[in-house]
């Protein structure tokens, strides 16, 4: 049975009618038009769907929308203030930390969680933190450089 859930998305309250089985990632994409959250796998490996729930990075394809009821969801679209770039977004741009861009939103959301709780991570810590985000284009080197740059800019 469908039910209406209320949650905060990128700072604004939203109500949406969902089936209990609906994955948060699909609800964000199909019903809330937040298509910056991508789906790249079905086993919780790739991390393209990473969003923040109450400020912590989670994989929105491994979460039911009903589980997010009453919580605050932040997607890549809501990471920075309007018309501004988050330091990580800027750093990914500056350091060529992306190519096709499909993994990028999830990568940035995970890195944002890392830096929020470990402002000056070592390279090894960055690589460890990004284990749940796969990128097939960059070989990770410039992603790591981007996270380091953003960490330095804080």
């Amino acid at each position: 049975m469908k039910r209406t859930i209320t949650l905060t998305v990128n700072g604004a309250p939203r109500s949406v009618e969902v089936e209990p089985r609906a994955l948060l990632a699909l609800v964000l994409r199909d019903q809330l038009d937040l298509t910056g959250t991508h789906i790249g796998c079905d086993t919780s490996q790739c991390g393209a769907c990473t969003v923040h729930i109450d400020g912590r990075a989670v994989k929105s394809c491994t979460m039911l929308a009903v589980q997010a009821e009453g919580h605050a969801v932040t997607t890549i679209e809501g990471l920075a203030a309007k018309d501004r770039l988050h330091p990580l977004q800027q750093a990914f741009w500056d350091k060529h930390g992306l190519q096709c861009g499909f993994c990028t939103p999830g990568m940035i959301m995970t890195a944002a969680d890392l830096l929020a709780h470990n402002p000056k991570p070592s390279e090894a810590e960055i690589r460890h933190a990004l284990e749940g985000n796969l990128c097939r284009c960059t070989g990770y080197q410039n992603i790591v450089a981007a996270v380091q740059l953003a960490a330095g800019a804080r």
Binding site: R29, L34, T35, G36, T37, H38, I39, T75, I76, E77, A80, L85, Q89, F92, W93, D94, H96, L98, G101, F102, T104, P105, I108
Partner: peptide, 17 residues
Amino acid sequence: KRREDPRLITGKATYTD
């Protein structure tokens, strides 16, 4: 720097799905 990036890093790009 790449001009592709602003739309990609902000989630505004349009992929097929």
